[in-house]
Nucleic acid binder design. Structure first.
Lengths: 340, 340
DNA sequence: ATTTAGCACTCACTGATAAAGAGTGCTAAC
DNA sequence: GTTAGCACTCTTTATCAGTGAGTGCTAAAT
């Protein structure tokens, strides 16, 4: 167990390092007004803290730097919630004030705010598209051979897909089909579309159109496609401003990792409530070994969940980040609640 | 006027520098098999070429590096069209083989291919959305108070926007309104929507609905919004791989410039046919002083035009880029031609 | 039994100096 | 007109001493 003095020293070291990114020496700790004991005492305590694995030296005679274990302890036990500046609160409130009615815009804007306020990179995972239900299907013919299928979900999400219209199919057929589809498919979760198409629609089409088989194929292609859960990323270039990413190779590999959308989406998907932090090695990807990932969830309507995340160096302003993400996720949830 | 020998030397210098990014010395030029004269002769010629401003030294005893004037001359007079490798041709053809029916997907994919094949950053400007005409308007009610307006243009472009439905407005009213709008607005260019709404629809609404004024306001908000011309960017991180962008500050400012969408769009908008190159200072932005921007146009249907561009260091493989952009823009144009 | 002052030691960083190497410009010979 | 030869310039790399921040240990002070 750590003594109070050790706790204080650890706190000062991490706070200082988060601010300056420089190893912290005993003398500079002794200068802090909260610290009433001498640098020699601090050196002794630091030796103990190092032995316990909370801090490290960069070389044999350097100041100390928090270890990942140190950050973990800091996050779990030493974090004092920070009040956001009125400036920050205002920025967020203003952004949500302006009437945004679309999910995409809200999320995009949130990602922007988050990265702007933090100088880190924000990543927002939309809710599982699969869970959303079909509200309406529309088909807009463009020309003789082509048309656009438009899916609207109950969350107001719109997907569209162009497809070829079989030459034999007339406009009236098309319309009839859309009507059938709408009556049968409304309220069906997107993930079930495929299944439903086979189980019900396939049969139904036979009785209504001549080219049922062909029509079905086209339909299938138009409707059942990948509905990937989208990632919204903000402030990707903020990574370049962190001193720990002076090394271009690291930046490159981190970018490469971020751009693997499906892996990132898997990483962010979570059931847990509240805010979570993954520090350094706790992250699964090599390129993120020097990073921390803070995640929080937001909610849409019933029980759909999305995730907002913040990616930065392990040396992160955790307390401010926690407050910001708390406020932001609540704002998002509130905004969406109003819609459903 | 340059002698043949000077032309040859200039060509060798630029070709070599494009490949290696290293200053080129007289000895290495003399080793080329096309070169039959000695390094001393080359030194003399290089002194002349330098005096004329085509090449520069990085310091008093260094090899030579092409100046911007040198690149300009190279592009205008020394460029021998390069045959693409079958690998490259295949990559492009394969990409376009797969039946993509949507403008966005084609463009996105094109940007991806271009940046992958070049290791530079590709930027594609869509056609002026303003020019595209309204094909159909649909309104999908989501709840009592909200609905989604969906615009489909003749190019298959889909825009959607959520809006609040006036509480007094019933579903039937909404439907009636959509019908009116569709009958009156089909074929109207998006840029004229605003005007048309005022000149015709405003009046018309009065005779059909009770809350004409309020309905009109909502309608206006839903339809007449910014339809910004979109930029599709591919391979933004490729910038990091260029040795001339070892300096993070340069990368940052270049990213900042690229992200100013409207300025970039203005920069890319062009009436000229064929391929254009802007070298270094010929670019308007400070951050692009060390860059070259190659642009080419593609066409959609009637007379709509978009631009594909490639951003890299001035030391660019111009001839390969020219061939690639030629092929790609033609493929895009062909693809779109099939649609209209 | 703690805490602290003092001191030797370590290591990174800075700046100076030297040596090597690449390349030029000029001169004189071909 | 062309080229070989050579002195000169400038960058790059390595080496080395000096400086300073910081540590660990010991012995004195509390």
């Amino acid at each position: 167990m750590l003594t109070n003095r050790q706790l204080l020293i650890l706190q000062v070291i991490i706070d200082d390092f988060i601010l300056t990114a420089q190893p912290v020496g005993s003398r500079s700790i002794a200068k802090k007004e909260a610290v009433t004991f001498s640098s020699a005492t601090i050196r002794n305590e630091m030796a103990d803290l190092e032995e316990m694995g909370f801090i490290e030296k960069t070389h044999s005679s350097s100041g100390r730097v928090p270890s990942e274990k140190g950050y973990r302890f800091y996050v779990d036990h030493l974090l004092s919630p920070l009040r956001l500046s009125s400036q920050e609160i205002l920025t967020i409130r203003d952004a949500f004030d302006d009437k945004m009615m679309e999910f995409e815009r809200v999320v995009q804007k949130s990602a922007g705010i988050l990265s702007d306020l933090t100088n880190y990179t924000s990543i927002i995972l939309g809710p599982e598209v699969f869970e959303t239900k079909l509200k309406q299907l529309q088909i807009v013919p463009l020309s003789e051979q082509s048309a656009i299928a438009i899916l609207v979900t109950d969350t107001g999400h719109v997907e569209h897909r162009a497809f070829n219209v079989p030459v034999e199919m007339k406009g009236a057929d098309l319309e009839k089909m859309v009507n059938i589809l709408n009556s049968r498919l409304q309220g069906v979760p997107l993930v079930k579309l495929h299944e439903k198409l086979y189980s019900e629609i396939h049969e139904l089409l036979k009785t209504h159109t001549d080219q049922h088989e062909e029509a079905f194929q086209y339909l299938h292609a138009a409707l059942v496609d990948d509905h990937p859960t989208k990632l919204y990323i903000g402030g990707k270039t903020n990574i370049l401003m962190q001193p720990e990413f002076r090394d271009l190779d690291k930046v490159r590999s981190l970018y490469a990792t971020i751009e693997q959308e499906s892996e990132m989406a898997d990483l962010l998907r979570t059931d847990q409530k509240g805010i979570q932090v993954r520090i350094g090695q706790e992250n699964p990807f090599d390129a993120m070994q020097n990073c921390s990932l803070i995640t929080a969830s937001y909610h849409l309507g019933n029980d759909q969940v999305g995730t907002i995340a913040l990616l930065g160096p392990t040396r992160m302003e955790y307390n401010r980040m926690f407050s910001l993400m708390n406020v932001l996720s609540r704002h998002m949830t509130d905004t969406f609640r109003g819609w459903y």
